[in-house]
Amino acid sequence: MDSLKQIMNTTGRIFDVQKFSTHDGPGIRTIVFLKGCVLRCRWCCNPESQEYKIQEMVQNGKTKIIGYDTTVKDVLADVGKDMPYYRRSGGGLTLSGGEAMCQKEFALALLKGAHHMGINTCIETTAALPFETVAEFAENLDYILMDIKHTDPKKHKEFTGVSNERILENAHKLAQIAKSLTVRVPVIPTFNDTEEEIFSIAKFAKNLRGVEEIHLLPYHRLGYDKYVGLGREYLMGDLQTPSKEHMEKLKKSAECSGLKVVIGG
């Protein structure tokens, strides 16, 4: 076990801290967004998270620096300010990104430091890293929200840049050791928004030990301005948000797996 001082002095790179988050894990939470990702999902709504390097992005006509280096101590001092709300709501710290596991040492130190302060921990992850890394994280996490975007390796690779074998294998292994695992599916038209595809993911999730819930997160266009701001092309074109009716249909088909299905996080 690292000494507390070591943990607190660990440095890493984040690009945002979001307070009063109520849909990414239980209760009122603070999300820390870490920079860098293994996937390159075409629909990603946080394109500024993908690169580890510090970037410039134009927002509302102003140039903003995205990403800064900081210490666990400073991040947790900020996260700790909302302790009264975590206590009352069962909330805590959620790591997001990018893929938080990419900054392994820093992210683990954040989780350990949070636990030391009595704050529960959660992650939004692709789990697309070597399983030993994922396992080390699981030890320090109270809740895991894991994305499973598709069961078909080819399509997965086409839309995210990475095949899904390791992700699916990790999901099985992770389910054995996770304290609480929830599967989340970004529902993306043209990629995975048919009843068959969603059912296939739900069936896979149902077979994971201990998984009881699956969240369907409808595609939204909130990232569009950011692509423009970063000078990047938005690959999703004019793709529309799935209708409420369609989401309900997908929910029904996912429910056939026997899991509890929630639309939205």
Partner: peptide
Amino acid sequence: SALEGEGGLESFVALIRGFFDQ
């Protein structure tokens, strides 16, 4: 929408509680 659903009400009450705890 911030108070939507049961979860929204729970978070809202926790916000009040957390402010009052301080």
